[in-house]
Structure formats: structure tokens, C-alpha cells
Amino acid sequence: MPGPLPAAATAPATAPATAGGFAAPRRFGRVNWRGLWTLYQRAFLRYLKFAVEGIVGPMISAALFLAVFVLALPQGRSSLGGVEPLVFLVPGIGAYQGFHAAFENAAFPIVYDKLEGMMSDVLMAPLRPWEVVIAYVGAAALAGMTTGAVILGLISLIVPLPLADLGTVLVFAALGSLLFALVGFLTGLWAEKWDRYALVETFLVMPLGILSGTFFTLDAVPAAGREAMLLNPVFYGIDGLRAGFIGSAQASPGTGAALLAGLCLVLFLVAWRLFASGYKVRA
């Protein structure tokens, strides 16, 4: 493809192909694939640039949680959810750390771009709002899955994990990461300062993530809490992902997947409309 001038690329897609001796504006079809791919790549490369820091922190906290549970578990307790306690805990901890990374990698770049004034680069580019949402959210979800996979891979060197169904694992990892990435995207839009980002992280993401059966089974919770847990979408993400490893779920994986997919769709529509309206990104 002839290298078009950056300015020409911002012209409407329907502009005439040639004009005098000037380079023709780039034409693209219904989807600006190259632009989408570029933004997606930028977002994911940003994650890779800090991948070591991004993985070491969650890795240490996962290891600490496991060590503490092993030491504090009552002796003689030999099963949790039908399997060895460690085998039950590891997928949950890996899932939570991955989901959290997806949230972080969606919210952080947006707040940063807004504060540093770089958001205009994205707004100026010939990308439709839904393309921007997909690029940010897709890259963040992949970042979350990568973090989760590395953590689970490293832990499984010490704690041998069964793998009942890789497909289930991948489906729930993708849906859960996508959900958290969308929440992260919305948080990024809403946050004008880091305070608000921290607010959502502390009071929504962490409680929802930690109280979703990462560490305990459904029947360990009193009846009222059990109903609350069944209303928490994150529970289905963690339960489904764990089922992919240990082979048994506490809730129906089909229902869980459908619920998560539906919620992702709703949040995507909200994110798309908000970004299209310029909510807190356009002056």
C-alpha cells in the first residue's frame, strides 16, 4: 500500500480517491482493520512493557495466599469442593489474579491517556467508537488471560493441577477477563483522577472478586450469603474456570457462560454509547 500522509487518513472514508498531484486519502471499508489492529497492538505492547512487574506482584500475592492457607488449614481437612484443598484454591486464585489484571490493564491506560492529554490521539484517528472500545477492551482481556495463564503455569510446577476440559477453561477465562476489562474501561472513562480508579478497585472489584468463591465453596456460606453469591457474576466466572480444571462445578456452567456473555454484551453497549457520546473524554 502506498504510504498515505497521516492528515489524509483522517479524511472521510467516502472522499474521492485522487485529487491532483496529492496522495489519495486512504480508503477503508466498513471496518478500519489497520487502525483497529494498531490501537490493539499499542494497548497490548503497553502491557508487555510492564509485564514482569505486572506478573511478579500478583504472583507473589498468589503464592502468599497459598502458603498461608496451607499453614492455617486445620489438619485433617482433606477435601474442599470434592478435591484436595490446594487443587481447589489454585484455579480460583489464578482466575482472580487474571481477572484483576484485565481490569487494571483496561482502566489504567485510559486514565493515564486522559491525564497526559494523549486521548486526543485516539479520538483524532479515523476509528469508530466501537473500534476503540474493542481495541482497548480486547487487549486488556488478553493481558488478563496472559497474566492468569503465567501464574497458573508457574504454580502448577509445584502443585500438580488436573485439567478436565481445556475448552471450558478458555471460555470462562475469556468471558471473565472480558467482563473485568469492560468494567475497567467504564471505570477509566468515569475516573478523572487516580482516586476514583482506586475507589472502584477497592470497593467493587476486590470485594466482588475475593468473595466469589475464590477461597471457599458455596455451602460454606450462610444461606443469605449464598443467594448473594449466586447473584454475583464473578462467581460464575471463577466457578466455571475452576470446573475446567477439577471437572465439577457448583453452578451450571452453561447458565454461567450465558449470564457472563449477556452481561459482557450489555456492558459493551454501554461502553460504546458512552465513548461515542464523548463522556468525559471530549471537552
Binding site: A72, R77, D195, T202, P207, I210, L211, F215, F216, A220
Partner: peptide, 30 residues
């Protein structure tokens, strides 16, 4: 100035830890 992050967040974290460890380990009244 940022007490949500410096006072409330640690408070919530400690309550969450209390909840998960009690639920995960406290059953059977150990």
C-alpha cells in the same frame, strides 16, 4: 486528603480477609 485510599481501603481489605479466611477455614468451629 485521600482517606478513602489510606484509611477506608485498608479497613475494607482487613474485613475481606476476615471474611474469606473465616469462611474458608472457620467451618467446623476450629
Amino acid at each position: 486528603n485521600v482517606f478513602t485510599q489510606t484509611i477506608l481501603a485498608p479497613m475494607v481489605t482487613s474485613l475481606l480477609f476476615l471474611a474469606i479466611f473465616t469462611l474458608a477455614l472457620g467451618r467446623g468451629n476450629i
